Simulated scan of single mutants.
Amino acid sequence: MDFGERLKHLRESKELGVNQLALKSGVNASNISRLENGERKDPTFKTVKKLAKALGVSVSYFADEPSELLAITAKLDKDVPIEELGDIIDYIKK
């Protein structure tokens, strides 16, 4: 199961629509739709973190293969706040 499939499955299991998740997470609804439909496969760590928080899971929920971890962490903004680095390290370890 890839990132988009996991996201959609989790969102639906929480009985949330795309727009509801967008409001709850602060991630644009069209971005969520593109991720779920596989049109976009490279979410930033910031996006993953927002979605995970809104859905009540850890960021590691979304990746089960090292290649997925690398793809997501490679998209890190160069100005990641220091307090987020612990989350990033935990994510990579899992």
Rank of each mutant, 00 (worst) to 15 (best):
A71Y: 05
E12S: 06
N28D: 14
K93A: 10
D2A: 08
D77S: 14
R11V: 04
L51C: 09
I72K: 03
G17M: 00
D79C: 03
R11W: 04
D79N: 15
S13L: 05
V27F: 05
V59I: 10
G86H: 13
S58R: 13
V18M: 07
A54W: 05
V48N: 06
S13C: 06
N19K: 15
V27A: 06
V48Q: 07
E83G: 04
S30W: 05
E39D: 04
S25V: 10
P43I: 06
E68L: 04
L10H: 04
T73C: 11
Q20F: 12
F45Q: 11
V59R: 00
L70N: 06
D42L: 14
R34E: 15
E12K: 14
K8R: 02
E68M: 07
S30Y: 05
K46A: 04
L10C: 03
D87K: 05
E84G: 01
N19I: 14
L69S: 05
L21H: 11
S25L: 14
F3K: 00
F45C: 10
E12W: 11
D42P: 12
K8S: 00
S25M: 12
G38E: 10
T44N: 10
I92T: 14
K94D: 03
L85K: 14
L70W: 11
E12F: 09
D77G: 13
Y61N: 09
K24E: 07
S25G: 10
E15N: 02
L85Y: 15
Y91F: 14
